[in-house]
Write a protein that binds this DNA or RNA. Structure first.
Length: 299
DNA sequence: CTCCAGGGATGAT
DNA sequence: ATCATCCATGGA
């Protein structure tokens, strides 16, 4: 089995895969195992390089294309220094930017991203991981990488014909109906999610929000993680907490509407990156604080 | 406008 | 060992 070494400057694999944008990668030792589209991949960071091994007997053409595939998936071409420099220079943003050095917004396959985020509603990251893995295991195709098994994400037409019972067994709860309904729209071509790449941000958001189980938050996630709309700024409870606490601590009357307007203006052309950095920093910081509190409840 | 659905990891006690 | 909290969309 061959290893491929790919230059990956200004990149942090662990932060990128652990920041709640993608849910199926599993940490194995000092590397990660997952799938990029249909290809099973093992990847590990070694300084400014990625060491990569791909699944069983890839075609020679596929093996030659591997470095480009990897670089494209992890968005190694994003000008990260420029992007970070475009962030507003306030205290909270500066801290998040320093903390998240090397975190990149990856390029996910559209259907996989859309379907996974439909499953994410009202769920925490740990649950979304379980659902994603369950869907892959039951409906996806199994691949072998070393002694690990990895499953690809099932195509829309496969989930469109899944029974409600099967979906419930993947712990989808009431999201099962939405996932299947959207899978049917996508597999029938009625919703041509590949063609939507050509739409403006506003048009794309409108199309996404018309799908069952997709509201403004999930639409923004899909725009950011699958359509490379780096302005899209998903507002979940974590981000809302950060905004209210650090940007509007004194103001009472900040409706969700006004928060949204603020984020669109304030964070600029790479607002999605800014959001991801604030999100990841807030989550890790809260884990650390909680731990500190429970170690010494009464200081 | 409010209320609710469905559920498992994780935290609090 | 129990008990509470987390989470976003859509329908009543």
């Amino acid at each position: 089995m061959r290893f491929t070494k790919i230059p990956a400057p200004d990149f942090d694999l662990e932060k990128t895969l652990g920041s709640g944008q993608v849910f199926h990668w599993q940490k194995i030792g000092d590397g990660f195992v997952g799938a990029i589209g249909d290809l099973a991949v093992w990847v590990k960071q070694q300084g400014g390089f990625l060491v990569v091994r791909c699944g069983a007997t890839p075609q020679p053409t596929q093996r030659r294309a591997l470095p480009r595939m990897i670089a494209d998936y992890f968005a190694l071409d994003h000008p990260l220094a420029e992007i970070c420099d475009s962030f507003p220079k306030d205290r909270v943003m500066n801290a998040a930017r320093d903390f998240c050095r090397g975190l990149r917004i990856i390029r996910q396959p559209k259907w996989e991203c859309l379907a996974t985020f439909i499953c994410s509603s009202m769920k925490q990251v740990a649950h979304i991981r379980q659902i994603s893995l369950a869907l892959r295991k039951r409906f996806g195709e199994q691949r072998k990488i070393g002694n690990q098994l990895v499953c690809s994400f099932p195509p829309a037409h496969r989930l469109a014909q899944a029974s409600e019972k099967e979906l419930l067994e993947c712990k989808l709860g009431y999201r099962g109906k939405n996932l299947r309904a959207t899978a049917r729209l996508v597999s029938s071509g009625q919703a041509d999610i590949e063609m939507w790449s050509a739409l403006s941000d506003a048009e794309l958001r409108k199309q996404l929000c018309a799908l069952p189980g997709v509201g403004p938050k999930i639409a923004n996630c899909v725009m950011l993680f699958a359509y490379e709309r780096l302005r899209a700024f998903p507002i979940d409870v974590w981000i809302e907490r950060v905004l209210r606490r650090h940007y509007f601590s004194r103001r009472k009357r900040m409706t969700p509407q006004r928060l949204r307007q603020f984020t669109e203006n304030y964070f600029g052309e790479h607002g999605g990156y800014a959001q991801q950095y604030l999100f990841h920093h807030a989550r890790v910081a809260s884990r650390i604080q909680r731990r500190a509190r429970s170690d010494a409840p009464y200081p």
